[in-house]
Design a protein around this nucleic acid. Structure first.
Length: 592
RNA sequence: GGCCUCAUAGUUCAAGGGAUAGAAUAGAAGUUUCCUAAACUUUUGAUACAGGUUCGAGUCCUGUUGAGGCUGCCA
């Protein structure tokens, strides 16, 4: 049980004794005492005033006195306006520290028996991953880790978008302009090669459109009738007809792309438990459409297309089946959701998808609800904002996309430059050095992206992200490495971690109190699906340790009790930083 | 047009309806007999606007302005 909970239940008891048994837990608000006030935790008494029928000061005073009697670990209380500040005994904090340091699963909750499925990444196979995918992948991976830490079973899935007109565009360009180029012969990663063809297609397409409009066609006509686009559409038709030659090209190009994606995923340190392919799932959902028609939830238009009318719900009409009977994105998503539920019976299905699809998921949920699926409420869209660059929005067609692989390489390269300049790599073998700079470069990238609240559009400035000062991953990793170094030295000197006697001073208590709030932070991050909470917590912790470290010698302390306390504190700090960073998918090296 | 999201120091980000809105970075000034100076200390500086709900609003509600996104056969 965490400290806040202990105090909360104590305060609830005290309030019940004073004001009657109808005092509910929700009226007891405990928060950390703000700096500049004397205390560790604070009870906000305003919500209790209706029951106490006394002034804020009197109410706080009464409860304070009661707490002082009933909780033996309370050292003192003081009242400032409606705030009852509670100060705990140093010995209590010392005991908490020892207990937490000895707890192998500190911060992680026991199994809940709940099953979460989380989908993320969801790439298209016609081009390589870019910065937007990085935010997606990091978010999905981190949320999965956080949910696991909260005791849930987590199934990580990917849905690869491997069919459709956009893939055919790359395929057509490959056929026309690619010759017999392969990833091996060109030295390009397979996904980059496919991306090259996609860009090539677009260039050709644009110039054909320009020609046609110059010849008198409207823009829309030209877009639909440009010969290269007609070819792409024809290829899609052949694909759907399982034309052998088309299938072979498709299979070959996809295998290149998958090899490329795997490499990027490996570099990012993420993986999946299961991968779905849209080429398998795109026909799903038609059964649901029939079901919806039978129930009268959907309606069929004269041209044969099927719709749902959501105007009464403040939304629009939405297409579910084209007039030619083929399914659309929504049809497929209904089908995969149902299939996944049948297979896994999840308690929650989380889709990590950009906020440009907010409307889609709103509709998806609503349709499932209207169809009477009891689990429709288990669907959650983990929506995130765009990543912008200092120069403005990313546009894949204008060549301003930041490629994921390039970015990762650049981060690692910069990490190496900075480390070399500081002489940090001097005593490392090349293998150690390259592993260290990889960890630092990726850590900086991941931290920079995850520290921002997912819903917000964020600005990614490559220069700033790689700055090794300030609120960055590298700073936190560095703090961890320094503590590890200190622990190695103390170990070499034969100093034990486990003695008692010393009482923590004010600064040490502050650090212990922050450490003790780690489990709550993890739980809260799990509820809100927010890695940003963990990121900010870890940064604050590292910063606070730095201050502590600066003013409190650890190894040079004469008094073995004090030294032991500080070593224990250092140990738990390093351990907590490591666990927090693990939840963000960031490695923390012991040396750097 | 309709719907959704966002708006906080020069800049990038915090702040579970609670106290004097925090950091980082940039700017100014300082610290090196110190276990990793990728550090530490001090300092300047912000809730877009107008109402409302509440004992209490950056946070909730309404409107305005600004930015982004979505909006019947793309995914």
């Amino acid at each position: 049980m965490n400290v806040e909970t202990v105090i909360k239940s104590g305060a609830t008891e005290a309030a019940k004794e004073l004001y009657g048994s109808n005092v509910s837990e929700s009226l007891i608000q405990i928060q950390k005492t703000r700096k500049d006030f004397d205390g560790d935790y604070t009870l906000v008494v305003f919500p209790l005033l209706k029951l106490s029928r006394k002034s804020p000061e009197q109410t706080a005073g009464e409860i304070g006195e009661r707490l002082l009697e009933s909780l033996d670990f309370v050292e003192s209380v003081n009242t400032v306006k409606g705030f009852l500040n509670i100060k705990l005994k140093p010995a209590f904090w010392r005991a908490r520290l020892e207990a937490s340091a000895g707890d192998k699963s500190f911060g992680f909750a026991p199994p809940t028996g709940k099953r979460f499925m989380i989908e993320y990444s969801s790439p298209n196979t016609n081009k390589p991953l870019h910065l937007g995918h990085i935010r997606n992948n990091l978010l999905g991976w981190s949320v999965a880790k956080i949910l696991e830490a909260c005791g849930h079973e987590v199934i990580k899935v990917n849905l690869v978008n491997d069919r459709g007109i956009h893939i055919c565009k790359s395929m057509v360009a490959r056929q026309k302009f690619g010759g017999d180029e392969t990833p091996e012969s060109s030295g390009m990663k397979g996904d980059h090669l496919a991306g090259k063809y996609y860009v090539r297609f677009d260039r050709e397409y644009k110039s054909q459109i320009a020609e046609l409009t110059a010849g008198g066609m409207t823009q829309a006509e030209a877009e639909a009738e440009a010969p290269i686009f007609v070819e792409a559409r024809e290829m899609l038709r052949k694909w759907e007809a399982r034309d052998p030659e088309t299938m072979e090209l498709w299979t070959t190009m996809n295998s290149w792309v998958y090899a490329g994606f795997d490499e990027t995923y490996r570099k990012l340190g993420i993986s999946f438990d299961k991968t779905y392919y849209e080429s398998d799932t795109w026909v799903l959902g038609k059964k649901i459409v029939e079901e919806g028609l039978a129930k009268g939830v959907f309606f069929r238009q004269d041209d044969g297309s099927v719709w749902i009318d959501l105007v009464a719900d403040g939304l629009d009409r939405k297409l579910l089946l084209r007039s030619d009977g083929t399914s659309v994105y929504m049809t497929q998503d209904l089908g995969t959701a149902e299939q996944r539920y049948a297979e896994y019976g999840f308690d929650k299905l989380i889709y990590t998808v950009g906020n440009e699809q907010n409307y889609h998921f709103q509709v998806l949920k609503l349709i499932l609800l209207k169809l009477g699926y009891g689990w429709s409420d288990s669907i959650y869209h983990l929506s995130y904002g765009m990543v912008e660059l200092p120069e403005g929005k990313m546009k894949s067609r204008e060549g301003t996309v930041v490629d994921a692989d390039d970015l990762i390489d650049e981060m690692i390269r910069t990490a190496r430059e900075m480390s070399e300049k500081l002489g940090k790599l001097d005593e490392m073998t090349e293998a150690e050095a390259s592993s260290t700079v990889r960890t630092i470069g990726l850590g900086s990238l991941k931290y920079f992206i995850l520290k921002v609240d997912p819903v917000k559009t964020m600005l990614f400035d490559p220069k700033e992200s790689i700055d090794f000062n300030g609120n960055t991953g590298a700073f936190i990793q560095y703090t961890h490495a320094r503590i590890k170094s200190l622990l190695r030295k103390s170990n070499a000197a034969g100093f034990p971690l486990d003695s008692s006697g010393a009482e923590p001073d004010k600064m040490e208590i502050e650090l212990i109190r922050r450490l003790e709030s780690f489990p709550e932070t993890v739980a809260l991050a799990g509820e809100n699906l927010s890695p940003a909470l963990i990121a900010n917590y870890v940064f604050e912790l590292a910063k606070e340790y730095n201050q502590f470290y600066h003013e409190h010698p650890v190894l040079r302390e004469e008094d073995s009790g004090v030294r032991s306390l500080r070593l224990t504190l250092s140990f738990l700090t390093a351990e907590t930083i490591r666990r927090g960073m693990l939840l963000l998918g960031i490695d923390v090296p012991d040396r750097m």
